[in-house]
Amino acid sequence: MRSIYLGFEGKIIKKGAEAELYLIDFLGIPAILKKRIPKPYRAKELDAHIRRMRTSHEVTMMFHARVCGVPVPAIYDVDPDEGVIIMEYIPGPTLKEMTLKDYEVSSIFKLVGFYVGKMHLNNIVHGDLTTANIIVPEPEKPFFVDFGLAERTGELEAIGTDVHLMLRALESTHYSKVKELFNAFLRGYREIMGGKVENVLKKVQEIRRRGRYVEERRAKIH
């Protein structure tokens, strides 16, 4: 299936690490066209494979998340061969921008925790949970984007990694508010996950030790 919008005209609004994002007109309404661009540092065949897989995977996972009530842009079209997704335009700042500008974001983090809990309970792991991948058009509704690394799994390891990524984003970028914002996140997360939260947090600790400390990090293959 080729997208009818490959000959699009639009203005580039963001250049992320993986993709370029354009604001286009889709049948009369504003829409976002996300195009994954080739990476010269990867072998051609590997690069083409990754872009294709992530593109089709992203729309599938966005759809799953939407079905279980998580705010996610609606999908309008997809073309895996071109690495193109066309989706609903969500106007608003990212949670990263809002937090860096010192807005009162505790209640948003609680909602983020709530929705991440919903995903985890429904066997969806986002895979790239940072504040840059959450758009906040209105304070009661944070939207999640960038599902290219998402997974369909209920494994504690994957869920723990998701929470670790959120915590690490706070530590690296919002370091003066780590406690406050992570606690807010956990309040919302616990509403959905209940008693499972303690197990997840234990896993998060284990993951962090493994990556950071020499002894845990040595390969044991025998």
Partner: peptide
């Protein structure tokens, strides 16, 4: 600040 890391073993390892 740490922005990325290995989740298990190191590259040299």
């Amino acid at each position: 600040r740490v922005f990325g890391e290995t989740l298990d073993i190191a590259l040299g390892n």
